[in-house]
Design a protein around this nucleic acid. Structure first.
Lengths: 225, 225
DNA sequence: TCCACACTTCGCTCTGGGCCGAAGCATTTG
DNA sequence: CAAATGCTTCGGCCCAGAGCGAAGTGTGGA
């Protein structure tokens, strides 16, 4: 016994309320500065600094210095997946941070999860693309079919620039509110970004909610009807 | 802010060394008694009892009373997935519990992960079945193709009994040592069980290692050559 | 019936680690 | 060059919670 990796270390890292709040805030996919994260966790900058150092040392966060600011972001999709998974377990166990605040409904409808679309809208997007034959599974990962390729380009996304990034084009992500998969990976991120530039949706600043405009919502609905 | 599920609670739960050791031990998929788990974590039964109560209350473990024993097992695949994910992160961060003990190599070669085969052998099984066309992805989950169906039955597994269980037949699991998917779900469990009854492999008692016999190994290799 | 064993509850101790105040660097701005 | 701002280091306080001993409950076997 006592072989294998030490789960306790990283789990304890995530298990501190302050650090967990920081991670949850970063799950939007945006990079945040140390002081912003301190505010998010309701602690002083000194304390936040210590936390962020630990999170970086264990490769959960990746720091980027920019002038006198220091931006932090979630290291990669593996970290995001684990945090997502933990949210799922917490939800099922009935551990919620507040008694279901007002924006909770909005979060369940649409939110950003590591820069891609999650919540009901995310699931609809994913399942719509599957049922239309835009996505297919093949071997180890999701594939964008030729018709799917055309669909995405018709949205105005330049796939050649998206495709050459290192991380995979399509992935699935299982999020907490809907126990279903939705589209993640570079394509997932590109689509959410495209929705924003098209003016279909915009992100709420203080929460992870994604707010669709009326036109945006109906345009979205037409894609899969 | 402060919306959504409270990750910190469950992460802290997993983050205690004693509880983490218990969970790691249970990741083999076997159900263990309270005293066995206490020994696994190097603590007294009293302390273990308190830990196990918390883990059960948060739905991470599922207790089953049997006579004067109380068996605990991992609640479901969602929990197993998160623990697997944490192992992956810990491995990448360089957090290992010992300085790579002797059985570490065996664990990387083949081990049980929530009752299915993981490690190199697990990946070979999964990728072999994919490349032979036994498995295909379709919509939201893995499908066993007709030829795959025949392959599994030829192994001597009664698929009709496996299929009627509630949890899905095929799933993927990403484990820590090989950053690749391997076959999970009911079929994954049935196959490992079949390997054991065929005498191809047996589980090490004190670790999660799965030891293949020489004949078992070569029989396995012939399946996919 | 009595003992052995598995598990639980209670009360207590003690330490690891989160938190802040104060002070120290670094970078931008005026 | 100051002054302001963002981040970090140091030192000390404090408490949640993990741990155990002792004693209680329930089940199984002789």
């Amino acid at each position: 016994m006592k072989e294998g990796p030490d789960i306790a270390r990283i789990a304890a890292l995530i298990g501190d309320p302050a650090r967990a709040n920081m991670l949850a805030a970063l799950m939007s996919g945006k990079a945040l500065t140390a002081t912003e994260l301190a505010a998010e966790a309701n602690i002083t900058p000194q304390t936040a600094s210590a936390h962020l150092r630990k999170l970086s040392e264990s490769k959960l966060l990746r720091p980027r210095k920019q002038g006198r600011h220091k931006y932090y972001e979630i290291t990669d999709e593996h970290v995001a997946d684990v945090v997502s998974g933990l949210m799922g377990l917490a939800e099922k166990a009935g551990h919620s941070r507040t008694r279901t605040g007002p924006s909770d409904g909005a979060l369940r409808h649409a939110r950003s999860c590591y820069n891609h679309l999650a919540g009901d809208m995310g699931v609809w997007l994913f399942e719509g693309m599957c049922s239309k034959g835009y996505l297919s599974r093949n071997g180890d990962d999701l594939m964008l079919t030729p018709t799917g390729w055309a669909f995405v380009e018709a949205l105005g996304i330049d796939l050649t620039s998206v495709e050459k990034k290192a991380s995979p084009l399509c992935r699935e992500c299982l999020d907490w509110s809907v126990r279903r998969s939705h589209l993640s990976g570079n394509l997932g991120r590109a689509i959410l970004a495209r929705f924003e530039t098209l003016g279909w949706a915009k992100r709420d600043i203080s929460s992870r909610a994604v707010l669709f405009t009326e036109q945006g919502q109906s345009a979205f609905d037409q894609l899969f009807e």
